[in-house]
C-alpha cells in the first residue's frame, strides 16, 4: 500500500512539474507563463514531498517533508506576485489577445504608485454620488 502511494505521488508530482515546464515554454506572455509555473510547480513539488514522507514513514522525515510542503505552497504565490509586479512596472508586454487591462491606466510608473480608481468617488459629496 505504501509502495503504491509512493509511486502514485511521485509520478503525479513529476507529471505536474513537467506540465508546468511545458507551460513555461508554450504560453504566450509572462503572466500566463507564471500561471503555469506557480500552480503546477508548487503542487508538483508538494506531491513529491508527500511521496517521500509516505516512503520513509519516519517522524523526522515527515516533519521535514511537511515543512518543505508548507514553505513551497506558501511562498509560490508571493514570488509570483513580486515578479509579476516588477515585470508590470518595467513594462513587460501582455499578449495581444488580452481583452482588458484595468491596471495599466491606474499605474504611475515613475512614482511607483498604484491608484485604486476609487478616490474620485470619495471626493464627491454624498448627494452627488452616482446611484449604485
Amino acid at each position: 500500500m505504501s509502495d503504491f502511494l509512493t509511486v502514485f505521488f511521485l509520478l503525479t508530482g513529476s507529471g505536474l512539474i513537467l506540465i508546468g515546464a511545458i507551460g513555461a515554454v508554450r504560453m504566450p506572455d509572462l503572466i500566463l507563463r507564471m500561471h503555469a509555473t506557480t500552480k503546477a510547480g508548487a503542487l508538483g513539488v508538494g506531491l513529491m514531498t508527500v511521496a517521500t514522507a509516505v516512503y520513509f514513514l519516519d517522524i523526522g522525515v515527515t516533519v521535514r517533508a511537511l515543512s518543505i510542503l508548507a514553505f513551497v505552497v506558501l511562498t509560490a504565490p508571493i514570488a509570483a506576485h513580486v515578479i509579476g509586479r516588477a515585470a508590470y512596472f518595467t513594462g513587460a508586454p501582455l499578449w495581444e489577445r488580452t481583452l482588458k487591462d484595468e491596471l495599466g491606466q491606474n499605474l504611475d510608473r515613475r512614482g511607483h504608485y498604484l491608484r485604486s480608481g476609487l478616490e474620485e468617488q470619495d471626493r464627491l459629496p454624498n448627494r452627488d454620488r452616482p446611484a449604485e
Binding site: G13, I17, A21, A24, L30, G41, M48, A51, T52, I83
Partner: peptide, 28 residues
C-alpha cells in the same frame, strides 16, 4: 523577468530531483 521565472522553476525541479534521489538511495 522571463528568465527569473524560468530560474525559479528550475529550482523547484532541482528540489524534486533531490526528493526523488533521497528515495532512490534510501537516505533521508
Amino acid at each position: 523577468a522571463d528568465r527569473v521565472v524560468a530560474l525559479e522553476l528550475i529550482a523547484l525541479i532541482a528540489v524534486g530531483i533531490m526528493l526523488a534521489y533521497a528515495i532512490q538511495v534510501d537516505r533521508p
